[in-house]
Nucleic acid binder design. Structure first.
Length: 413
RNA sequence: GUGAGUGUAGCCGAGAGGCCUAAGGCGCCAGGUUGUGGCCCUGGAGAACGAGGGUUCAAAUCCCUCCACUCACCCCA
């Protein structure tokens, strides 16, 4: 019986992997250039970490298991809580704001679809310890910058949960969260039913008006001049200063229950139904994990979706050398010539005892930029001599090994 | 979790009850060319047709179950 990989998981072949690393490296460089430092947390955590605040659906969709010591564990369904846990455990006294980033796999037990996997990769940042609007703006601007460097266009929507929460002033936190969940799902029928249940039908009209309002002034007319709107206005005008186009959208509610303030989402085109490539916002979680109450803002990119949205991209040609030799010289080529060139460039030698023709064919097949030919003619001229062939132009010349290395560098492929 | 579609060699893909011990193309290996690649030509290896069961004299082709993928719902990244 053939064993298949588990449902919703992916194998990455060399070509796909090269593409993913290419994109990943660009994303890393971007956030590092803004001063964010990489961290890594365990692939599984205590179940409690996620039951505290994530919401029931996240738990329903998680891989939860007991280890042999009877501990309740969970494969991380996302990374904001683990990072906050790490912060509380190890980094609370570090200078603020703390700027962290991660690139890690997460697990959710869902029905797979294009851009939706049971194991998927998130690339995200958390900016911890600042309550200033500048910080929230930076996180959005950074997400936008990441998209720009990888050459992907996104549709940015920014909202603020405070407006909605102040509108629901009299409801309990639990009730507010329920309402937010309905809005996030755009389940307005369910919302109505729920409001009837908790005898708050008077709210419905204003809630609908708020989430349909297109700008902050319109929202002011509904909820009044509350701090949340002032904050969002501030953020929005700063985004304008950064030249970041965005839409104000009060229906951006985020499914995760820990978000408390500004929230944003980015959508890409051409991904079908799973088109959200990034989500983020401001939250307070540290105090729930035994730390000080700490304002934080973060985002996460769905890396697999980003890769999908980018489609076929042309990767830059990498310098790659194939050493081709006659049968008489293959030991010399393999043990004396190749190691010297390998110090500078990725270098392959023949392993199939092929003739010159076959070796050149191989050189072509692996996409070598240059072929170094080592044969009797070269050896007769002297131990240092090889023939360097540029595989793009077909030009070739007999040179010393040192000259050949210089020439390859000069070609700068 | 609900509904729909799909599943033939590494990849694409023909075949729709007996002509199938399954076409073709790409890729792979070898040769044409014992010191020159990409093109071309020739040959070769590679599939009991997603898995298991059933109907039939006969199944890749029909039925059932399971598995996987795709799409929508849902959920979010």
């Amino acid at each position: 019986m053939k064993i298949q990989r588990p449902r919703g998981t992916q194998d990455f072949l060399p070509q796909e992997m090269a593409k993913r690393r290419f994109i990943e490296n660009k994303m890393r460089k971007t956030v590092e250039s803004w001063g964010y430092q990489e961290i890594q947390t365990p692939i599984f955590e205590s179940l409690d970490l996620f039951t505290l605040r994530s919401g029931d659906t996240i738990i329903d969709q998680s891989y939860i298991f007991d280890d042999k010591g009877g501990r309740k564990l969970i494969l991380r369904p996302e990374l904001t809580e683990p990072v906050t846990r790490l912060y509380v455990e190890k980094l609370q006294v570090d200078p603020k704001p703390l700027k962290l980033y991660y690139f890690s796999n997460c697990f959710r037990y869902e029905r797979p679809q294009k851009g939706r996997f049971r194991e998927f990769w998130q690339f995200g940042v958390e900016l911890i310890g600042s309550d200033r609007p500048e910080s929230e703006v930076e996180v959005i601007a950074l997400a936008s910058s990441v998209l720009e460097t990888i050459g992907l266009k996104g549709n940015l929507r920014v909202g603020h949960l405070g407006a909605l929460r102040s509108l629901m002033g009299d409801l309990s936190d639990e009730q507010k969260n329920s309402v937010i969940r309905f809005i996030d799902k755009r389940d307005y029928e369910g919302l109505r039913t729920y409001l009837e249940e908790i005898s708050a039908t008077s709210l419905e009209e204003n809630i609908r008006a708020l989430i349909e309002s297109k700008d902050i002034n319109e929202a002011r007319g509904i909820v009044g001049d509350v701090p949340a709107l002032e904050r969002l206005e501030n953020i929005s005008s700063q985004l304008d200063l950064h030249g970041i186009s965005h839409k104000i959208d009060f229906s951006v509610a985020r499914g995760l229950e820990y978000y408390t303030g500004m929230v944003f989402e980015i959508y890409a085109e051409g991904l079908g139904t799973e088109n959200q490539i990034c989500g983020g916002g401001s939250y307070r979680l540290a105090h729930l994990f035994g730390g000080e109450d700490t304002p934080s803002t973060g985002f996460a990119f769905g890396f697999d979706r980003v890769v999908l949205a980018l489609g076929d991209i042309q990767l830059p040609q990498q310098t790659k050398i194939m050493i081709v030799s006659t049968r008489e010289q293959r030991d010399w080529a393999r043990t004396k010539v190749a190691p010297r060139i390998r110090k500078y460039f990725p270098t392959e030698v023949d392993l199939m005892n092929r003739d010159i023709n076959g070796q050149l064919s191989r050189s072509n097949a692996i996409g070598a930029t240059h072929t170094v030919i080592v044969g009797d003619k070269e050896r007769q001229k002297g131990e240092e001599f090889v023939t360097l062939k540029n595989m793009n132009t077909g030009e070739q010349e007999m040179l010393t090994i040192e000259e050949a290395i210089k020439r390859i560098k000069l070609d700068g492929i």
